[in-house]
Simulated assay, not measured.
Amino acid sequence: MHEMSIATAVVDQVAEAARAAGATTVTSVRLLVGELAGVVPDSLAFCFELACAGTVLAGAELVPVPVPGRARCGPCAREWAVGMPPDLCCPLCGTAADELVSGRELQIAGVRWHDDPAQAPTCERIHEES
């Protein structure tokens, strides 16, 4: 189950960033999860909870942000949702996709943490997608 190694890597990166910022509690982690990333969301959530135990992320919520798979055709410049299983041939001209535009993402998009559990959480952006 590669979801455990993904969850562990996310927890390690967030814990390091939280430590560097002096945060004592992480309350949530937003994670971009591409449709084509090969990740089972329920398994990732389960593994994330296990990986958080005993860390500054204990009890943190994982907020997966789904990113649909999209491809682009070179000859006609059309962009389309590829779906699952992915349809990588242009629906307009039938040419194979030149580029996968989105859907492979697996990255931390944001983290909420705070220093004092009695205070309201403050937002700290680790990465923001445009």
Rank of each mutant, 00 (worst) to 15 (best):
R30V: 00
R30E: 08
L31A: 01
L32Q: 06
V33G: 00
G34T: 00
G34D: 12
E35H: 13
A37E: 03
A37G: 00
A37Y: 04
G38R: 01
G38T: 05
V39S: 14
V39G: 03
V40E: 15
P41G: 15
P41V: 15
D42E: 15
D42G: 14
S43F: 15
F48L: 10
F48P: 06
F48H: 07
E49F: 02
E49M: 10
A53V: 11
A53T: 09
G54F: 07
T55G: 09
V56H: 02
V56P: 08
L57A: 07
G59D: 05
E61Y: 13
E61R: 15
L62C: 03
P66Y: 13
V67L: 03
V67H: 01
P68I: 05
G69Y: 04
G69I: 03
R70S: 01
A71H: 08
R72H: 06
R72K: 11
C73K: 07
G74S: 09
G74K: 02
C76F: 02
C76N: 10
A77N: 05
R78G: 13
R78D: 03
R78M: 14
E79T: 13
W80Q: 04
W80H: 08
A81Q: 12
A81P: 10
V82P: 08
G83M: 01
M84R: 15
M84S: 12
P85G: 09
P85N: 08
P86G: 04
D87A: 15
D87P: 11
C90G: 08
G94Y: 00
G94E: 04
T95E: 15
T95V: 09
T95D: 12
A96W: 04
A96C: 11
A96F: 14
E99M: 10
E99R: 14
E99T: 15
E99C: 13
L100F: 04
L100S: 12
V101K: 05
V101F: 09
G103C: 06
G103V: 01
G103I: 01
R104W: 05
E105P: 06
E105Y: 03
I108Y: 03
I108K: 02
A109L: 11
A109T: 11
A109P: 12
G110K: 07
V111T: 07
V111S: 10
V111N: 01
R112K: 08
R112S: 10
